[in-house]
Amino acid sequence: MHDSHTTGGHAQPAAHGDGHAGDHAAHAPVATGTFVMVWVALLALTMVTVAASVWFPGKVGIGVAMVVTPIKAALILMWFMHLKYETAVFRVMFLSAIMILALVMGLTFFDYSFR
C-alpha cells in the first residue's frame, strides 16, 4: 500500500506547491490486491442474494436481499469510490444526500399508509 509513497511524492511536486490543492493527489494509491478482494466479496454477496431468492423465495429471500444489497453498496462506496480514503466531509455529504432520500421516502409512505 505504501510502495508508491515515494514515487507518488516525486511525481507530484505541484501538490506541495499550492498547498491544499493537490492534497488528494499526494495520497498513496490503494493496493491492487485490496480492490480484487472487494470485487471477490461483491461477487460472493451477489451469489448469496441469488441463492436466497432461489432456495427461499418470498420473505426470507427478500429479507436477505434487503440486508446484503446495502452491504454491497457500502463496499462500492467505501473502496471503489474511495470514500474510506477521503476526508470525513465527503462521507457527511453522502450521508446527508441519503438522509434526504430516506426522508422523502418516509414522508411518501406516511401519506400512502393513511389514505
Binding site: 505541484a14 506547491g17 499550492d18 491544499h20 490543492a21 493537490g22 492534497d23 488528494h24 493527489a25
Partner: peptide, 8 residues
Amino acid sequence: HHEHRDDI
C-alpha cells in the same frame, strides 16, 4: 507550469 487547480 505551476498551474492553479483545486482537486478537492
